[in-house]
Structure formats: structure tokens, C-alpha cells
Computed example of a mutant assay.
Amino acid sequence: MRFETSTPPDGVDWAAVAAWWDAWGAPIGILIVIVGAFIAFRVVRTIIGRVVGGVVSGVKRRADAADTEALSNSPLAQVRVVQRTRAIGSVLNTMLAWVIAALALILILSILGVNAASLVAMASFLGAAAGIGAQGVIKDFLNGLFMVFEDQVGIGDLVDLGAASGVVESVGIRVTQVRDVEGTLWYVRNGEILRVGNRSQGWARVIIDQAVPYDADVDLVERQLLDVATAMSEEPEWLGRVIDKPETWGIESVSPDAVVLRLVVRTRANARDDVARELRRRVKDGLDELGLDLPSVQKVVGDGLEAKP
């Protein structure tokens, strides 16, 4: 008796299927991983884009602005929300792209038969190479990331970054662009920023150290300075920019030729310079009314330049 074994009972040649899979299984698996990684990245990017777009659209509606550029005429806080949200969205897209790419690479290497020990060794080697060869880039990236998330600077802020001072025009993950008062655009690497002095957040203080003749009536001059500042702060044009009552802090320094008195006005951060210029003009007019012969600036000893805490 002879048994036929060439064709399996169920009609499927599993040996042929196994041989075909041995030949094409790895390429198909790699293709599936690549397509899956691409789809995952598209899905994640779409989700992040919708979240960022929702935040930006909400700000535009509250600001009654038709486009992002129109937000320049809106409150600075709304502009900062848009800039910060988009920067965070860009960072998340980049980070997730690298994570998905790394996972896909690991899966592909596993399909090709690379064992776990080799993968760990390769990851350690790549990490060491990145740490040695790209220390500056990584430092720039991390510092820029913290600057964005902590809202240390924003577009339109007047800042002192140590390396450059001026108005922020762009906040990137690696480089921050600052334009100084002369119009020079400075590109400051985020990794080189050790401190950030921001003059556009919260409130600011206008400090005027006014020198008057040594024999002047200090009390009279102080009252005149305070009256001038108070009258200005109560005018409709300046009422929204001055956020506290003006103060005189008394005598800051004394020299044989002059007495320096300090006048202080607390303002909104973005209105400091405008208030300071107008207040100086009015102080000059107020002192002219008293008929004071002001001492020469070169003779004034400015010992009291430190601001009162």
C-alpha cells in the first residue's frame, strides 16, 4: 500500500508558504514598519496641529483678529500665547518624529535578526557619539526648550541676554534673534544664554534722578516733582499706563554743587519708555516754573544709582 503525501489534506501547501515567508517575510515586515511609522507620525502631527490651531484660533477670536499678524495690535499676552504655542508644537513634532524613527529602526533591526545586545551596544555608541560631537547643539536645544516652556522671552520683548540687548524678533529652539537699538540683528545661540533680563513682563519702573542746586528748597522741589507726576498719571492718555501713584524717594546723593532727588513712577512694562520721556519733559517744565538754575550734569556725582528694592 502506498500513501500520497504531496498534497496536504486541507489543500494548502504549508511548506511552500513557509518557504515563501522565509524569502519575503523580512522585506514585508520592514515595509509594514516603515508604513506604520509614517502613519503614526502623520496622526500625531495632525493631532498636535489641531491642538495648536485651536489655541491660536481661540486667541484670534478673543482678540477679534483676522490673522496672526493682526495680533500685533492686540494685547502682548495674546501674541505671546500664539508664539509660545506654535513653538511648543514645533518642538513636540520634532521630538515625536525622532522617537518614532528610533522605534522603527529598532523594529527593523529586530526583523533583520540583530539581537538585543547588539542594539544596546549600538544605542550606547550613538549616544556617546552624539554627546561628544553635538554637545553644543544639544545644549542649544535644551536651553531653547526651557526658554519656550518657561516663557522667559517672547516676540516683541525688550530683553538683555548678556551677549545682546534689544527687541526679540524670533525665538527658535537653537537660536534667538534680537535687534538692538541701532538696528543690528543679533543671532544668539540659546546655549550661550546664561541669564535673561526681560523688561516687557509684568510691570516696570521709571526712575528719574533729578539734580537741583545745593541751596534749593528740597521740600518744595519734591512737592513740585510729585505734583507734576501725579497730574500726568491722572490724565486719560496716561491713566492706563501708570499703574501706581508716583513717589519721591528723597535725596539720593549730595555733592558740593547739587542735590539729587529721586522720582519714581510704576508703569506697565510696555509703556515704560513712553512714560519716562513724557515725564522728563514735564519735570523740566515744572522746575522751570520754580525758576531754578540747574547745575551742570558733568558736576553731579551720581552716588545713588542703585534702585530702591
Rank of each mutant, 00 (worst) to 15 (best):
2 R>C: 00
12 V>K: 02
15 A>V: 04
20 W>A: 12
20 W>H: 04
22 D>S: 11
23 A>P: 00
25 G>C: 05
31 L>N: 00
31 L>D: 00
31 L>G: 07
40 A>T: 14
40 A>K: 06
43 V>F: 08
56 V>T: 05
57 S>V: 01
67 D>S: 15
71 L>N: 02
71 L>W: 01
72 S>P: 00
76 L>G: 10
77 A>G: 05
84 R>Q: 13
86 R>A: 07
87 A>I: 01
88 I>G: 12
89 G>S: 08
91 V>A: 09
94 T>S: 13
95 M>V: 15
95 M>T: 11
96 L>S: 12
103 L>T: 12
105 L>M: 13
112 L>N: 07
124 S>F: 08
134 A>F: 15
136 G>D: 06
150 E>M: 12
150 E>F: 12
153 V>S: 10
154 G>P: 09
157 D>H: 03
159 V>K: 14
160 D>Q: 06
169 E>S: 14
179 R>E: 09
183 G>Q: 05
183 G>A: 11
183 G>Y: 10
209 D>S: 05
209 D>F: 00
211 A>F: 07
212 V>C: 04
213 P>G: 07
214 Y>Q: 08
218 V>A: 02
222 E>Q: 06
223 R>D: 15
224 Q>F: 01
227 D>R: 10
236 P>S: 04
243 I>S: 08
244 D>W: 01
245 K>P: 00
247 E>C: 00
247 E>K: 09
248 T>E: 06
252 E>W: 01
252 E>M: 14
257 D>E: 15
261 L>P: 04
261 L>E: 06
263 L>M: 03
265 V>A: 06
281 R>V: 15
287 L>C: 07
290 L>F: 15
291 G>R: 14
296 S>Q: 12
296 S>P: 13
300 V>H: 06
302 G>V: 06
305 L>I: 09
307 A>V: 15
